[in-house]
């Protein structure tokens, strides 16, 4: 019974990973790719680790799998944040015509201060 639930969780994880990877291929620019990749792949991998808990029960490997989940969430969100900030300062444009761009002024004033 436990292993059936485990396999179902593994399949759900695989499905989310698939959506994330298709998004990585299909979306037009780096920001949207990061949106698809980070969210879907993180939740998919967490679902796989939870499936591992059902296979091993509350033994050594099961508990290690559970403490990997918060670690994964924190590290993935901080990495996404660093990458998106880096690529903005690097100079990648947000789509063809961004609806709203509040961050631009901030970056430009920062650059002026640096030159001074």
């Amino acid at each position: 019974m436990n292993s059936i639930i485990g396999v179902i969780l593994l399949f759900i994880g695989l499905l989310f990973n698939l959506f994330g990877c298709i998004g990585l291929i299909r979306f037009p620019d780096v920001y949207n790719r990061l949106q698809a990749g980070t969210k879907c792949v993180t939740l998919g991998t967490s679902s796989m680790l939870l499936g591992m808990l059902f296979f091993f029960g509350f033994s050594e490997a099961g508990i290690k799998a559970v403490i990997t989940i918060p670690l994964l969430f924190l590290s993935a969100s901080v990495a996404a944040h660093a990458l998106i900030r880096g690529s903005y300062i690097f100079g990648v444009k947000i789509g063809d015509q961004p609806i709203k761009d509040d961050y631009k002024e901030q970056v430009e004033t920062d650059e002026k201060n640096e030159v001074k």
Partner: peptide, 17 residues
């Protein structure tokens, strides 16, 4: 995100707020 990925027209309208 899955809906936006699967949808043929990809309904995206990005911006920074």
């Amino acid at each position: 995100v899955a809906y936006r990925v699967i949808h043929p027209a990809m309904p995206i309208k990005p911006g920074i707020v």
